[in-house]
Write a protein that binds this DNA or RNA. Structure first.
Length: 505
DNA sequence: AAACCTAACAACCGCACGTAA
DNA sequence: CTTACGTGCGGTTGTTAGGTT
């Protein structure tokens, strides 16, 4: 409470009791007899009053605190103060390494569920954890480091595979009581090497995975982002490279329609020069928009598009009334939330909804009948869920692969799956590109300046990324670790664990 | 010494949900 | 069934201290 004490005098002078928006700030606006409510830091005197009151009357009914104690604070503020500072069971001081590790695991599991995380960290508050996490994100953002340690990704996917083999799925957290061994704080080292932004290593390559050969998209996305991108959370992404964010779906998709030639059929990339410095171009150049072009020729209007089997969205861009409830709001870990946001069958932006027509979403029946739901589940659950979803979607596509609706070759199926996570509202283009251009390790020596990587018909700016020394080799063994598909091969994990040198911590 | 930057912390704000009237 | 209220949660902003330039 040193801070409170120190601020006592200051606060009494600085924080007046005449704050104009107090009533709005505290829902209900209970001023208890018209006493103006105070805002700002608490004084020790106020703390004492609150502690005394709670000691006598217990927690709850916070608005009564102000009424009965004369404290010029709204109930909301009282609750917050008590919960975050005055509770006797609070643990003060910095997080221990064990706690930090636990937070990371919990965040991978739960996402920004601070309260739930706090429930698993005795003596810690949601606010504390949130502040810690946000600070940590900033720090790692600045350092260009991934947010989640690779072993968490490995663990998640390994368990995914294991559970698939067992055929046991559960959406409950208790499924993973020991999500990661607490004593396994040491991360296998990852040696990042230069990765040429070769379009053969771009999503087309990622997507050219034999049908049914390996895990479905979620795992690949997981690793693509978890291992290669430092940008997992939407908020994180939204603040990191504003200039690269997709400015608007309108521009993106009008661009796709108007400016991008349907060039995917020959494996090349569309010409979209106007998006050169935009995530949409990156997204296109990464190929995620490629199957848009399968359906979207330059003279296609959205209304002329067909409904992809399994899609909830009518292709005229109207919001689907049958949008599955889980699609409306997903509560996913930061790893997941980014992914999931890309994959939402319906995006919050109406203008994006035309995308929905191109994004294959799981049939409602399937969703409803599925035991797995990304809501309130953790990373693994979401992975499993999405894997199932993708499988179901693939199945549907296979069944209806007549060519009228979707002209699918096997790779296209994968591409469709990849697109499923391609909600342009979230910076998929950015993140997808980030996997290969921004956050794929590049040579320290050769990347002093942003690199322009020439691709068929478009250029992608490759940002400097310093992952440490680079030995100058571009051999496949170096590159392969950047390939999520490789990472998902069932036998790769052990090798990976032994080979990679972490840039974590 | 001043300006600037960053981390850590505290608190506010708006929204959502549950419940009682 | 509707509404108001209480509460919880997550996002965001503001403040301060310490370090760096």
């Amino acid at each position: 409470m040193s801070m409170t004490s120190e601020s006592d005098n200051r606060m009494t002078s600085q924080v007046g009791v005449d704050s104009p928006s107090v009533e709005e700030a505290c829902g209900g606006g209970n001023t208890g007899g018209g006493l103006p409510l105070k805002k700002g830091p608490w004084t020790s005197a106020e703390d004492a009053i609150l502690v005394d009151y709670v000691t006598k009357h217990g927690e709850g009914n916070w608005n009564a605190v102000q009424k009965h104690s004369g404290l010029a604070r709204c109930g909301k503020s009282c609750r917050l103060r008590w919960a975050n500072h005055l509770r006797p069971d609070l643990k003060k001081g910095a997080f221990t390494p064990e706690e930090e590790r636990h937070i990371i695991e919990l965040h991978a599991k739960m996402g920004n569920k601070w309260a739930r995380m706090a429930a698993e960290l005795p003596g810690r508050t949601d606010n504390e954890i949130k502040n810690y996490w946000n600070t940590r994100i900033k720090r790692r953002q600045r350092a260009g480091l991934p947010i989640y340690p690779p072993d968490i990704c490995f663990q998640a996917i390994s368990e995914n595979k294991h559970n698939e083999e067992l055929g046991a799925f559960s959406s409950t957290d208790s499924q993973y009581p020991d999500f990661l061994p607490m004593n396994n704080f040491e991360i296998p080292p990852v040696e990042f090497k230069r990765l040429e932004f070769n379009h053969q290593l771009c999503p087309p390559a990622l997507l050219d995975i034999p049908a049914g050969g390996i895990l479905d998209i979620p795992g690949r996305r997981l690793l693509a982002q978890g291992l290669n991108s430092a940008y997992y959370s939407r908020s994180f992404l939204s603040t990191m490279h504003p200039a690269k964010r997709i400015r608007g779906s309108e521009s993106l998709f009008s661009g796709l329609n108007d400016d991008c030639s349907p060039s995917r059929n020959d494996g090349s990339f569309a010409t979209c020069n106007q998006y050169q410095d935009d995530g949409s171009l990156l997204a296109q150049s990464m190929g995620f928009s490629s199957s848009f072009n399968q359906n979207l020729t330059s003279d296609h209007q959205p209304s002329s598009l067909s409904v992809i089997p399994g899609s909830h969205a009518p292709l005229n861009g109207n919001t689907s009334s049958s949008e599955p409830s889980w699609a409306k709001k997903l509560e996913l870990p930061s790893l997941q939330s980014q992914m999931a946001s890309w994959g939402l069958p319906s995006s919050p932006l109406p203008s994006l909804e035309s995308v929905d027509t191109l994004i294959q979403s799981p049939p409602t029946e399937h969703t409803e009948s599925c035991n797995l739901s990304p809501r309130n589940s953790g990373l693994l659950d979401a992975v499993l869920y999405e894997s199932q979803t993708m499988r179901a979607s693939k199945s549907i596509l296979h069944q209806e692969n007549s060519g009228d609706v979707v002209d699918n070759s096997c790779p296209d199926l994968h591409e469709t799956g990849w697109e499923t996570y391609g909600d342009p509202i979230s910076p998929l283009g950015h993140s997808a590109a980030s996997v290969f251009s921004e956050y794929t390790p590049t040579s320290g020596s050769s990347s002093e300046e942003p690199q322009l990587v020439t691709m068929p018909a478009c250029k992608v700016k490759q940002e400097k990324f310093d992952f440490g020394p680079y030995d100058g080799k571009d051999d496949a063994s170096n590159l392969i670790f950047s390939r999520p598909d490789y990472l998902l091969e069932s036998n790769c994990f052990g090798h990976m664990q032994n080979t990679v040198r972490s840039i974590w911590y």
